[in-house]
Amino acid sequence: MIGRLIAGGLRSRNWLGDWRTKRSLSGFRQFLPWRKSPGRDSDTTTGPLSRIAPRPSTDGDIESARKRRNDWTDLLKRLAPGSIGQKVNILSGKNPTRSEFLRIRSQPSEVADVRHAVRDISIEMGFNEEEVSQIALAVGESLANVIQHSYQGACDKPIDIRLEVDHQDSSAILRVVIRDFGKQVDPACIQGRPLEEVRPGGLGVHIIRTIMDETIYERADGGGMRLTMVKKVTPVTRKMNES
């Protein structure tokens, strides 16, 4: 399984090796990169999205990032269908949901990191290869829309990303919530354009709505917009991937 691992400005093509320096992610430092998810029992300082948080580029951090990756992998394995008891033990709560939170800046260069992390999580959840690519695309389009439309290209505005993995019996649900603090618009006006009009632009919303099972745009309390996207792993998909 090919995955990407990001930590402290380092990224791996394959999380078992091939480390290479990519770039500094020092831009994240001016924000609070990680916060405890309200009402959740899970520790939000681990998991794929946490690997985007800024850390010095040292060998020690490579190792700790590798360990965090393994922790996340192990957790998802233990949360596999049929292990309900373990779910409760691991999360010490009633809701077997893994929740992660990240705040990034509205820089196009940061979108790829989030996209890769979402891809990793989707792979671990059991989505097939096509679905993994599509989910990463939907998340990438959502963030691009925030940058282009909500913030009109400004690169220093905050974007909050919440990512939840919810296991339910034989299926699992990936929920991605993207919140901005830009201008509010009527959610009913957020529509994809007719594809018969072949021209650049305006395809993002169509792509998102086509890929995801649920897509909800809302005005967020305190300003800005909130987009909630849901994709469900079907038992059929899981079975195909396991075989």
């Binding site: 695309l137 990438g140 691009a144």
Partner: peptide
């Protein structure tokens, strides 16, 4: 490996 609507638009 990846293209989004901005790339397709181009």
């Amino acid at each position: 490996q990846y293209i989004d609507s901005s790339g397709v638009g181009s």
